[in-house]
Design a protein around this nucleic acid. Structure first.
Lengths: 132, 132
DNA sequence: TCTAAATTTATAATAATTCTAAACAAGGGA
DNA sequence: TCCCTTGTTTAGAATTATTATAAATTTAGA
C-alpha cells in the first residue's frame, strides 16, 4: 500500500506543516481558501482522515467540539487555557513507572497516553483576574 | 446561591449515582425512560449541565463523539479499550513532580489534569488478536 | 488507448448538543 | 389569597462537526 498524495492531500498536509498552532478542519479549510485552494469540505475531511491513517498527521481530541490536527508526529501532550482557549504543547513524557502502575491497576495492555492539562496561560494570568 | 434540585434533576443525579459505568446523555435518557421518567431531551442536558455546574457530577470528554457523565467526584483518569469501547477508571494520581515540570515548560498556571489512556482491556486481549 | 479503481465534488444525512418560545410551577410579598 | 417575578420544563427548531452518497472526474495500469 503506497502513499497516494493527491494535490489536495498535499495542500492539506502543507497547511498543517506550516501551522504553528493546532488547526481544526474548519481552520484548515480557511487557510486553504486564503491561498486560493477551494476544496469541498468532504475533501478536507477525507484528506485529514487519510493523512491520519498513513501516519503523517495526528488528530487531537482535546475535549472541544472540533478535532484539531497536527503534523508534528512526536508524541506530546497539551495544555488548554481556560480563559482564551489557546492550546500549547507539553513535550515532557509521562513517567514509565506511572504508566506501569496504571496498566497494573486496570489490567489493560496500554498503547497510548494522552494528557490534557487545563490552566491559565501566561498572557491571561497577567491581566487581572476575571470579574465573574 | 442555593441548590435547586427539581425532581428531574434529582432523577438524573440518581441515575448517575447508581450507574457503575459512565453513561452518555443518551444513556441517561434511556435509563430514565426505563424507570418511567420521560423528560425532554433538553431537560436532561439542562440537568446535566446544572449538576456539573454545582459540582455534583463531572463531565468526561474522552475523545468520543458524546460526553459521558460521572457522579463520582474524586479526581481520576480513564482508560478506553480500543477494541470494545469500554471505559475504566484509573485512580492513581499523576506525580506532582511531573505536573510541576509541565507547568514550568508551558508557563501555565495549572488547575486540572486529565489523562486518557488507550489500550486493550483484559477481556478483549483474551480473545485472539484481530485479523486486520 | 481503454478500463478499473480511487478521488473529488456537491449535497444530503446524521449525531450530539444548544437555542427558542411558550407553557408551567414555585415562592414571596401586598 | 392573589399576583408577580423568576426559574424550569417542554417540544421542536437550529447549529455544529462530521460522515455518507452518488455522480463526475482523475489516475494508473494493462
Amino acid at each position: 500500500m503506497k502513499l497516494n498524495l493527491t494535490m489536495q492531500r498535499k495542500a492539506v498536509l502543507e497547511v498543517l506543516q506550516h501551522a504553528h498552532d493546532h488547526p481544526t478542519a474548519a481552520d484548515v479549510m480557511d487557510r486553504l481558501r486564503a491561498q486560493g485552494n477551494v476544496f469541498a469540505y468532504g475533501t478536507v475531511y477525507n484528506s485529514l482522515r487519510y493523512l491520519t491513517e498513513v501516519g503523517l498527521v495526528k488528530e487531537l481530541k482535546l475535549g472541544e467540539a472540533a478535532s484539531r490536527y497536527d503534523a508534528k508526529m512526536e508524541d506530546h501532550h497539551h495544555v488548554v487555557c481556560t480563559r482564551c482557549g489557546r492550546v500549547d504543547e507539553v513535550t515532557i513524557e509521562l513517567p514509565a513507572e506511572w504508566l506501569g502502575k496504571a496498566a497494573q491497576e486496570t489490567n489493560y495492555e496500554l498503547h497510548h497516553a494522552s494528557v490534557v492539562l487545563e490552566g491559565v496561560c501566561s498572557s491571561c494570568s497577567v491581566q487581572n483576574s476575571p470579574s465573574k
